[in-house]
Design a binder for these strands. Structure first.
Lengths: 356, 356
DNA sequence: TATTTTTTGATTTACGTACATCAAATTTTC
DNA sequence: GAAAATTTGATGTACGTAAATCAAAAAATA
């Protein structure tokens, strides 16, 4: 049987009240006594039963998720995953609120972070924008002992506790590697389409892609980066322009969002699979394009995994316990038309009963 | 505040004892009363606090994991993941025992399944072998109301509750797709190396691979399947023979284990990256071969994810509650040298405190 | 209607921890 | 050495559910 607080008391030769004072870091215990208790804990291998503790405390975890607003399929999918987590709140003792702020707008994000801090939640998850003010705002949260997890896009230089997202340099390298191999012997320039160099994930993907293309496939010229602001209309316009300017393009790496525009431009251009296209994030649009062969590969990050991971990590940080590292590593999924997962709206099995 | 059993009692106008009888399906409640209570539960939206219930019951989940024995890196990695889960038992209320049986031996597996049944655990996870006797043994477990999850290799036709593994047809198709694209214009035959056609996962991968090669890359002849029994020594011998017989081989798809033998044969052959090699399961051997370019891509299933998923599903089945479907879908990871995850022995972050 | 059987209620204890209160013991300070 | 301050112990209640006991009420049977 697992040892309990009573066993500690017996082993240390003190009362239950003293054990409680030590365990919960309350005042009024001499250091000799405290050590006696701590040694007993160590000796008998006691670990707190968090479920029982949470029951006794009636603990709930108020979390705030800060996401970019706007018409971005991936971000809306992310929000849907947060809502799915909210629907499980009763079981997970979480109280999650969602705050949306305009994309690529550091000031708005700082305001949202400061507002979240005022509510003193048990943790904050945020899709970060890489700027000094945002770093400062995140560090203010941390200074207030509020755990912070960055989601999708990291914030290097800040004191955030954890990053729930993929290794974007590796993602860019992978895209480069696939591009080079898929192009085989064909020669011609390759275009890169990004959202904004303001967000770290886009910059990192670009760096990784450029590095691999230069070192392993130097035959392909790299055209200047197209910044489409993740906006489908703008993307369509800019890509069509690029096609007109460089009709000999053989490959496109779309590392941001707004792929609807890219797909539209590809369709208008016609002559089908002549161009090798690698894009990010599996949405209804990229999925359809993959199926008809307009896109050759999609690199994806599992938004559901990211949200669940962020919640697990925030809880663990709030409780000061460890996490299963491997479980929180977000994979770079590579989808070809051959390994597309089945579409699913609901994330609940049509099973008996309810969820733990 | 979340409604409790007391709220049900008040809402239904019955006593706590009656509510308990209904909730835990005890005898001695008239059907009219039972319905009154059930309607109240529905009306106020009560959901049982599983943490509190488990506390009151002092519930533990005894699980049995049945794995193939022998010198197979992937299976030993799987076992290590089960042991990692065992180290978390105290937090997860599990009591896990591991049973190993000789690989590709249906009789031994049936014996192990029947022995597991005798211990009447709360669930069994098994790496299945596709045979009628094994199906019958699994169905005996289910007849005894013991949840069963197949791990890595499924058992179609059985009454198993869940399969914790990848879609192996899709994996084979993906391998075919990558093979065809990576080969680009080059022509020449492609070899397939399998372990045994006795296990379903190997058969399915082969089917998927053949299908894509035939429909999309008909230019490449497919050599007869080499069955290496997942044995490195045998694999090395057979592959070397195949090289001698067909020196013009341009690609190899290794869909089973024993890749050490394949790598040794490739190294002996020399002339480096002339052959496109796609293998399964990221082990120290395939990782090293990927890094030096002997292998071009590795398809992987995350053993840690599979084990954790199997445990979550077994718990859910034992409690009769739903699972988060998306969380239990095991991905086909595609690793190039560019997106290899960092190696990690431990799966505990070097963090403060302990695990929930 | 009397008797038996079934159903329901009331109450208690338990799970492991948190937290509060008050008294008793010990230590510190003057 | 006495008073004050600090430390420790003893005890009870709470969290939400499970499970048991016994009495009371209601229903079914004779």
């Amino acid at each position: 049987m697992r040892p309990t607080v009573h066993d500690i008391a017996a082993a240390a030769g003190v009362s239950l009240a003293t054990v409680d004072r030590v365990l919960n870091k309350r005042a009024g215990v001499r250091s000799v006594t405290r050590e006696k208790v701590e040694q007993a804990i160590e000796r008998i291998g006691y670990v707190r039963d968090v479920a029982a503790a949470n029951l006794a405390k009636s603990r709930v975890y108020p979390f705030v998720f800060i996401l970019p607003s706007g018409d971005n399929s991936f971000m809306r999918g992310l929000e849907a995953q947060v809502r799915a987590a909210i629907s499980r709140s009763a079981f997970e003792r979480t109280v999650i609120s969602i705050v949306t702020v305009p994309a690529f707008n550091p000031e708005a994000l700082v305001a949202a972070l400061d507002e979240a801090r005022a509510a003193s939640p048990a943790g904050v998850a945020v899709v970060a924008i890489d700027s000094p003010e945002v770093i400062a705002a995140v560090d203010r949260l941390r200074a207030g002992r509020i755990p912070v997890v960055t989601l999708v896009s990291d914030l290097a230089g800040s004191k955030r506790d954890h990053f729930a997202g993929v290794d974007n340099i590796a993602a860019g390298r992978t895209a480069g590697s696939l591009m080079g191999r898929f192009l085989g012997g064909r020669s011609g320039p390759v275009a890169v389409l990004a959202g904004s160099m303001l967000v770290r994930d886009h910059r990192e993907r670009l760096d990784g892609f450029h590095a691999v293309m230069k070192e392993s496939f130097p035959g392909h010229a790299l055209l200047p980066v197209i910044e489409g602001q993740d906006d489908p209309a703008l993307v369509e316009h800019l890509v069509s322009e690029a096609f007109a300017a460089s009709p000999e393009i053989v490959g496109i790496y779309s590392l941001g969002a707004g792929n609807r525009g890219l797909i539209a431009a590809l369709q208008r251009k016609g002559n089908g699979s002549a161009i090798c296209v690698i894009a990010h994030e599996l949405t209804q649009h990229t999925r359809a394009a993959l199926n008809v062969g307009l896109i050759d590969a999609v690199l994806n990050q599992d938004a559901g995994h990211e949200v669940r991971s962020a919640i697990r990590v925030l809880k663990a940080k709030a409780d000061g316990v460890a996490v299963i590292g491997a479980q929180e590593r977000i994979r770079i999924d590579i989808f070809l038309k051959d390994n597309l997962p089945f579409e699913q709206d609901s994330n609940q099995e049509p099973d008996q009963g309810r969820q733990d």
